[in-house]
């Protein structure tokens, strides 16, 4: 294996920015699972919606792109909240599998609405010129997005950490994920907290979606499926329900994927299988994930 240090650093930068994106999307999965014990299958499609909303915001409105980059995720957050109200709230008392089927239905609904409304043909993401530059640091040329993505991710994570650790809402979220029933007896407004959780998760997914669009500028109604599944896997690897774990899982998956191709180019075709194989290995060896708590079932 002869890979120059420059090449290696390029791969690392690529892997870290991909990992950041995975981390942002994985947080939405892990927060929802923590509270509702539900795999939000439609989360990847929410990510897709966020990217499309940004696309339309930039192309069809005079609003400057940096404001669209905030407005579109906020709107996506609201859509996530509406999705929860319509598809999951009526099933609060139902078995988990029923809710999961509803989530799968919601995912297909959003994808096909996407084809219906946005059209099935791929669209090119209107990347702002400033983000298209390529930096040259000591012989290593790195696209500026690969710097921006991790920085934005870190800022968002600090913000999220503040909300969860320091605010009353955050405390209520933690209480709900620890013990749903007791928390509801303590006067916590469960529906309100769940709505906020969906809003935050969808907001972060849309943020990830925008940066995804900048990095891979091709939008399709099915674009959320594979990243969605992979980010769920990232959340499982880190220990589902645990936000730090989701971030860790995202980075493991992103870096792992890029480095796998970098060091073993013959396996390029198996890139998408890597996440699933990792998932199955983790589930069999440590089902609670790297940072998850052990759950025992009561009879």
């Amino acid at each position: 294996m002869n890979m120059s240090i420059q090449e290696f650093l390029q791969h690392m930068a690529n892997g870290i920015s991909l990992g950041s994106l995975y981390a942002l999307i994985a947080i939405g999965y892990t927060m929802v699972y923590g509270i509702l014990r539900l795999i939000n299958f439609a989360h990847g499609d929410i990510f897709m919606l966020g990217t499309y909303l940004t696309f339309y915001g930039i192309i069809f409105t005079p609003i400057p792109w940096y404001i669209v980059f905030i407005l579109a995720p906020a709107l996506t957050g609201l859509l996530g909240l509406v999705l929860e109200r319509l598809a999951y709230k009526p099933l609060r008392e139902s078995p988990r599998i029923t809710v999961l089927i509803s989530a799968i239905g919601a995912s297909f609904l959003l994808q096909n609405l996407g084809i219906l409304v946005f059209g099935g043909r791929p669209k090119a993401f209107p990347t702002p010129a400033i983000l298209e530059k390529v930096l040259n640091v000591g012989g290593v040329s790195i696209a500026i997005v690969n710097f921006v993505i991790p920085i934005v991710t870190v800022i968002l994570l600090i913000g999220l950490n503040y909300v969860i650790q320091k605010t009353k809402t955050g405390m209520a979220m933690r209480a709900l994920s620890k013990d749903y029933e007791t928390a509801s007896l303590m006067g916590i407004n469960i529906n309100g907290i769940i709505s906020i959780t969906f809003f935050i998760g969808s907001f972060l997914a849309a943020m990830g979606g925008i940066m995804w669009g900048v990095k891979y500028p091709q939008l399709m109604p099915h674009m959320g499926v594979l990243p969605g599944l992979k980010c769920f896997i990232a959340a499982v690897i880190g220990g589902i329900g645990n936000i730090t774990g989701a971030v860790l899982g995202g980075f493991i998956l992103g870096l792992g994927e890029i480095l796998l191709i970098a060091f073993l180019p013959t396996l390029t075709g198996y890139r998408d299988a890597f996440a699933f194989i990792l998932l199955i290995v983790i589930l069999l060896l440590k089902p609670t994930g790297l940072m998850g708590e052990k759950i025992t079932e009561k009879v």
Binding site: P90, L91, T98, I101, A106, F108, Q111, N112
Partner: peptide
């Protein structure tokens, strides 16, 4: 295109809910 599957996904959700 897509309307047909919108109908079927809605059908699934309505039945489940």
């Amino acid at each position: 295109p897509g309307l047909r599957m919108v109908v079927f996904s809605l059908a699934l959700m309505v039945v489940v809910i």
